[in-house]
């Protein structure tokens, strides 16, 4: 981390004028290391991970992948796997549309430069609450009530997306430049005009790129939802795995991977275009975007 100092200059009683090496950071590093090692040991203790298991696990995993080769596309195509993968994509799309449509107005109401605190704080907490429940759990409950099917999956994904999209969008709104809002105020504009002309043009490109990013995440989520009966490719994977038809499993996996990568590639290309469409260079905007996704700015 720091440039290595020759050992003979490190000993105590360094020549006059040279500061002692500070011990604070070293202690802090040691403490962090101990905490992580301790947490790891505690975690591992509960996982039934004997040495024998650890040693055989990679081999067991590899064996499964070996069994999948060569993948049996013919059977899977007969069983309509393409339709099932597409169904997952449909579910993800509708879920994202629902999430985007509901989160956008809520995000404005959750921002401190638009909305008073008695409206803002409850909506914020709502976002946090929604985000705390995984979409799969939401789907478990919805399926219990509405019955199996893709619509339950889309609803679950949409609901969960409201939480993340709402939070990210409102952070973007709060960090928008106040200047245009002041200009609208100075023209005698109302609240709605401040939002529509002062803030919306600034934040929309980034918010749309969040939507696209969420769609990428949702495609994976909806594939998983099939595993509990909410429509899509997950059900096919589960049933083939349960019957240990590994070549078919291989085919399902490869098709899923291909579709997911295809969608990721298109979506990220579109995202880059949307973000680059504004002022500022592409690279730094993407850095900001990723900073937003992990909850800090300018990273």
């Amino acid at each position: 981390m720091t440039a290595t100092v020759p050992p003979d200059e490190r000993h105590e009683g360094a020549p006059a004028g040279r500061p002692e090496r500070p011990v604070g950071p070293l202690v802090a590093r040691a403490v962090v290391f101990v905490i992580i090692a301790g947490a790891f040991a505690w975690g591992a203790s509960g996982l039934d991970a004997s040495w024998a298991r650890l040693r055989s696990a990679p081999g067991d995993g590899w064996a499964i992948f070996r069994l999948m080769w060569p993948p049996d596309f013919a059977t899977e195509l007969d069983r309509g796997v393409i339709g099932k993968v597409l169904e997952s994509v449909y579910i993800a799309w509708i879920g994202t549309i629902l999430g985007a449509a509901i989160s956008l107005p809520l995000a404005f109401l959750a921002s401190n430069n638009v909305s008073p605190s008695f409206i803002r704080l409850p909506i914020r907490q709502l976002f946090n609450a929604i985000r705390a429940v995984p979409e799969l759990i939401v789907a478990v409950i919805l399926i219990a009530i509405t019955g199996l099917g893709p619509w339950a999956g889309a609803l679950a994904i949409g609901l969960h997306s409201v939480g993340t999209l709402g939070k990210l969008s409102s952070e973007e709104i709060e960090s928008s430049d106040r200047g245009p809002v002041e200009a609208v105020e100075a023209c005698g504009g109302r609240w709605i005009s401040r939002v529509r002309w002062g803030i919306l043009p600034q934040v929309m490109p980034v918010i749309i790129s969040y939507w696209l990013f969420r769609f990428e995440v949702n495609v994976r989520a909806s594939a998983v939802l099939g595993m509990i009966g909410a429509g899509g490719v997950g059900a096919e994977l589960i049933s083939q795995l349960n019957f240990r038809n590994f070549p078919e499993v291989g085919a399902v996996l490869i098709i899923t991977i291909a579709v997911v990568i295809f969608i990721d590639t298109i979506s990220s290309a579109v995202r880059k275009r949307i973000i680059a469409g504004g002022a500022g260079d592409d690279q730094s905007r993407m850095a900001v975007l990723f900073g937003d996704l992990v909850g800090h700015r300018g990273g």
Binding site: L136, R220, A221, A223, V224, G234, T256, V260
Partner: peptide, 8 residues
């Protein structure tokens, strides 16, 4: 690896 959903 990233294209395979976590529960898969």
């Amino acid at each position: 690896v990233r294209a395979v959903p976590d529960l898969f």
